[in-house]
Nucleic acid binder design. Structure first.
Length: 428
DNA sequence: TCTGGGGTCCTAGGACCC
DNA sequence: TCTGGGGTCCTAGGACCC
């Protein structure tokens, strides 16, 4: 059979600009002229900055306590992360995109790939990119940039350039090979999708500093020296699409729930509470995607930044005889694991639960001598999930308790403007 | 005082088997 | 002197992504 390479494909990557910062600003027009940053969970470090904040050279990832003085001096507005708000706005952005193009892959909370091949209204890809931009701006008030290319990697790169160089006005189409050279030559290799810090270091040692130099490398050699992933990246940079659009969201293969504590935990009872909460979150996600977990892992650790006492961390895991999504079963198993790893003494900074070895709830292959998961349990859990969906935190395992000093700090939290009736923005 | 959280994929290496 | 060889499966850890 003849092998044909489809060279006419094109992808767009739509990425919201400074997404979390833009979400916060949306409901606070009074902050339009002020720089704004968003903090990570527990108000730990800076994870989003608006354009003005970037100009002030506030570094991404900077620990909050280190830049606090600077933020105050520059009158920067500070927000704790508000995932209820970002998640809701994200799904509105995605719905809008789905109306604009038939094939959409939701890649992250603030990005989506669109397949543009074969859309007849897409004769001029650049104009279509502008159309996406204005539509999202008009309907949701959020700024986005659009990168277009014959492969996902080039669409990503185009998006990077569309953001970086203002003359593109937020849209760049790199479908034409001659337009690429210029941009690729000016893009540092570590900006290429799939090339992180370590890989960039090794490439630079081989005198590959730019995306163009990587594009001109030999894929077979890259495969041999590095991995199949980098070989694919080289092909993608040359306009050969190796990665397809993944429209369907596959169920997750593992579910993690972990948090740093608001205050250090030294007491086992408090740790049990925290673990029980994390476990309930994880089990809820597990049931939401109709899965069961066979493996449960737990980890606890002190702080890596603590100078005075040595770092301590440990983890343990176990396999369930019957895969389960019942919070009570999983919680009991988690308590067992905690007994295994618990050591009195260290000041714990973080703990977490990992559910893995997941399988579909439907059509489960049970072990010969293990009891099948009970239907009663499934109905009970479904009922709890329903109640909690309506009123978050209304039903929980008693061990979890109501409050604890360990709970995360969110001192600068904005209201849940779009997901709670009692917190709707007021117009006066 | 104060340093995020949640994912995926790939590879290497050991265990085990024939 | 000389210690098979190839395949599969599993896990841990690294690297990457947002």
């Amino acid at each position: 059979m003849p092998v044909s390479i489809n060279t006419t494909r094109s992808f767009a990557l739509v990425d919201c600009n400074n997404f979390y910062a833009s979400c916060e600003r949306l409901f606070r027009p009074d902050l339009k002229q002020r720089p704004l940053v968003v903090l990570s969970n527990n108000d730990g470090c800076i994870i989003a900055r608006c354009a003005l904040a970037k100009q002030l050279a506030i570094p991404m990832g900077a620990p909050f306590h280190q830049v606090k003085a600077l933020l105050k001096q520059q009158q920067v507005a500070v927000f704790s992360s508000n995932y209820a708000l970002y998640g809701d706005l994200s799904s509105r952005v995605m719905q809008t995109l789905e109306q604009l193009a038939p094939k959409v892959e939701i890649y992250s909370i603030d990005e989506a790939f669109l397949e543009l091949s074969g859309l007849d209204f897409c004769q001029n890809l650049h104009d279509f990119g502008q159309h996406i931009r204005t539509t999202i701006k008009q309907q949701l008030g959020l700024p986005v940039c659009v990168g277009i290319g014959p492969s996902k990697t080039l669409a990503k790169l185009a998006n990077y350039a569309a953001k970086k160089y203002p003359q593109f006005e937020g849209v760049l189409d790199l479908t034409e090979p001659h337009k690429r050279l210029h941009i690729l030559a000016r893009t540092p290799v570590h900006e290429v999708w799939g090339v992180g810090r370590k890989l960039a270091e090794r490439l630079q040692a081989m005198n590959i500093d730019t995306a163009l130099q990587l594009a001109r490398a030999c894929p077979q050699q890259m495969r041999k020296k590095f991995s199949v992933v980098l070989a694919r990246t080289v092909n993608e940079l040359n306009g050969l699409a190796c990665l397809a659009l993944d429209e369907v969201q596959e169920p997750k293969q593992q579910i993690i729930s972990s948090r740093s504590f608001g205050q250090r935990v030294t007491d086992k009872g408090a740790m049990q509470q925290a673990i029980t909460l994390y476990l309930s979150r994880a089990a809820e996600k597990l049931r939401a995607q109709q899965s069961l977990a066979r493996r449960l892992s737990l980890f606890i650790r002190s702080s890596r930044f603590e100078q005075k006492s040595p770092f301590f961390g440990d983890q343990a895991s176990l396999e369930l005889a019957t895969p389960s999504s019942d919070s009570r079963v999983l919680q009991q198993a988690a308590m067992q694991l905690l007994d295994q790893v618990w050591r009195q003494g260290p000041a714990y900074a973080k703990a977490g639960i990992v559910l893995s070895d997941l399988c579909a709830m439907q059509g489960l292959q049970t072990q010969l001598f293990a009891p099948p998961p009970s239907e009663r349990s499934q109905r009970l859990m479904a009922a709890i999930d329903q109640l909690n969906q309506k009123h978050r935190g209304s039903v929980f395992i008693a061990r979890q308790g109501k409050d604890g000093d360990w709970q995360m700090q969110r001192r600068f939290l904005s209201p849940a403007y779009t997901t709670r009736w009692d917190q709707l923005p007021e117009v006066r």
